[in-house]
Nucleic acid binder design. Structure first.
Lengths: 342, 342
DNA sequence: GTGAAAGCGCTAACAG
DNA sequence: CTGTTAGCGCTTTCAC
């Protein structure tokens, strides 16, 4: 168990001051005008003994940790874990590490996590916020902690935000079904006040209204999707047998829907056209493949990282906050082929 | 932007010493014999102003960070992200946060991450190690840093380890196919020296040999699975048209395999029986459902966390290292139903 | 019972 | 150009 060497040991060993070592280690030797020889010598020695600075001490002193907190709904969800993978990759390139937390979309859990990571002095937050976090987000903003929201946002707070054009995309998805001869299109979504779900709902309603169709909406409770989701959808379809296509508000709802259709022995797309908001790795492997409005994850991740780094690097006190809306992409598969009238 | 209050401010405000505050905050007032009244007063004030200790300073002083590093192959992989979710949940209950890194199964990346997190003084590591990390792992061991390996291990190093019984499970899976009348069973795996893949291979070979069958083995390069995996499997099947069932070494290989079978227009299980090592959320939604040897993730996670906490809490210098092997579970679906001879 | 003071390892004024 | 020094916020020994 080799003892940890500190900057002090190095200074002692080399018969120079701590400052000199610190300066050289931080690449300020040029800037301050230290001699080449000295710099070389220190760097060489440091390399030799494999010295690693104590990040804790550094952070305590500088107030910077080079850690970013990514707060998502659930790391086991493919959308979020893919976002996490992208963000990690991008931030690594800039010398940041990421620490993440799963909120399970619960306000209390999210608050706890934000507090915790703020206490740990993370240099910034990327947050997919559950409902009711307005005051905590405002708190972070007031403390001038770099912050980006994504997937959804608060209409009442001005934050840097990255989202997809939920309304447009939902509308397009439903229009796609309509163009392919589906006439009674149901929307399975969450009972949620969050902007992304509200916008998707509005997109659905717009498309339906534009064509003078009837809307069929089923809102599931987020926390109960895993318990009763399938039953709820089965019931919805049983009560509305005229429905000939379903648009799902998220990919996990689509998965539940597929199970529900299985149970009802309804075939896709023969008995029921299907489009999912959010793609999923495996939708292309289903038979039939499931058509999806895909969120361009790499684009979203890039934008978030850019906004965050911009804030970190920004010196101006009143940098204008930016909202970035990226377009979703429709991935057409067989679950939404033209309906043949019978 | 409210200024951060420190223990010093509290002491000043209350006209007592820093020590007293610190002692009380750490619950040592009883132990040291501080007056009830004093204790109450401080606790109340601290609560009132919402004081939060600076974890960095605390960590610098104590050497403990209450952070555990979880090193996995890829956070976007459903197996690993589910492990991450479980481990996070369990460690949270013990006051630990987790910071993770994706190694992409690359030695260099893993070494870099280990160094990085060690520099950040994490209190322990849970690692799914890529090949060639022996010396780094030994380094951690020598520094007495708590450490658990999972999914695979090094035969040459004595570490706490949690794995599934890869050999037995693979053997069982293949036997299941054999019992259901499949006679020419191919094994699609990775070209990897890692223990888990070696053991699965041996399990396959044992089952095949036991029945005097012929083995058909296709090893794909891990790094090229996403590029050429499908083509490779297509070629394998084209070259060995007698194969009537496939056993896949991991769930993502299974996904590639399904695409390959699609492309060859071979139906499951009519033309090809299928079993996957590792389950996947969506295997039950495929038509037909894909039979899988599932790793019991919650059990694995629990065991890992237990072993890690044991090490953290252990005082004895030479605690015996433990290897835990949990049984995998076969989830039978339609992809492996009895083959009807024709 | 409570407080003063040292020090964890590092950075950055400030001096010389 | 280089060294001295004062903290960052906290824990903990030792003294009163």
């Amino acid at each position: 168990m080799k003892k940890k060497v500190s900057i002090k040991d190095i200074a002692a060993q080399l018969n120079i001051s701590i400052t000199t070592v610190s300066l050289i280690l931080n690449g300020k030797s040029k800037q301050v005008g230290l001699s080449e020889a000295q710099t070389e010598r220190v760097l060489k020695y440091v390399e030799e003994i494999g010295y690693k600075p104590n990040m804790l001490a550094k952070s305590l002193r500088t107030g910077k940790t080079k850690i970013i907190c990514l707060l998502i709904e659930d790391i086991a969800d493919p959308f979020f874990s893919t976002v996490a993978a992208h963000v990690e990759e991008l931030l690594n390139q800039h010398g940041y590490k990421i620490i993440y937390g799963s909120t399970k979309n619960q306000t209390a859990k999210a608050i706890e996590l934000i507090d915790l990571f703020r206490d740990r002095h993370v240099d910034g937050f990327i947050i997919c916020p559950p409902e009711g976090l307005e005051s905590d987000i405002t708190g972070l903003l007031n403390e001038r902690i770099p912050l980006v929201l994504f997937d959804r946002y608060y209409k009442t707070i001005d934050t840097d935000t990255v989202i997809v054009d939920n309304l447009e995309s939902a509308c397009k998805a439903v229009n796609y079904l309509i163009e392919h001869n589906y006439k009674n299109i149901g929307f399975v979504t969450l009972d949620s006040e969050q902007t992304q779900m509200q916008d998707r709902l509005q997109g659905y309603e717009k498309a339906i209204t534009d064509h003078g169709f009837t809307s069929y909406i089923k809102k599931l409770s987020f926390s109960k999707v895993n318990q009763t989701g399938i039953d709820d959808i089965v019931q919805f379809l049983t009560e509305n047998p005229q429905i000939d296509a379903l648009f799902f508000g998220t990919n996990y709802l689509t998965l539940k829907g597929i199970e529900a259709l299985d149970r009802l022995e309804l075939s896709i797309p023969g008995n029921m056209g299907v489009i999912s908001f959010d793609d999923h790795d495996v939708f292309k492997l289903f038979k039939p493949g499931i058509t999806a409005m895909a969120q361009p994850i790499s684009q979203i991740s890039e934008q978030m990282v850019n906004l965050l780094l911009e804030q970190i690097d920004s010196t101006e006190a009143d940098r204008k906050r930016k909202k970035i809306i990226v377009p979703a992409i429709i991935r057409i598969r067989q679950s939404s082929v033209t309906k043949t009238d019978n």
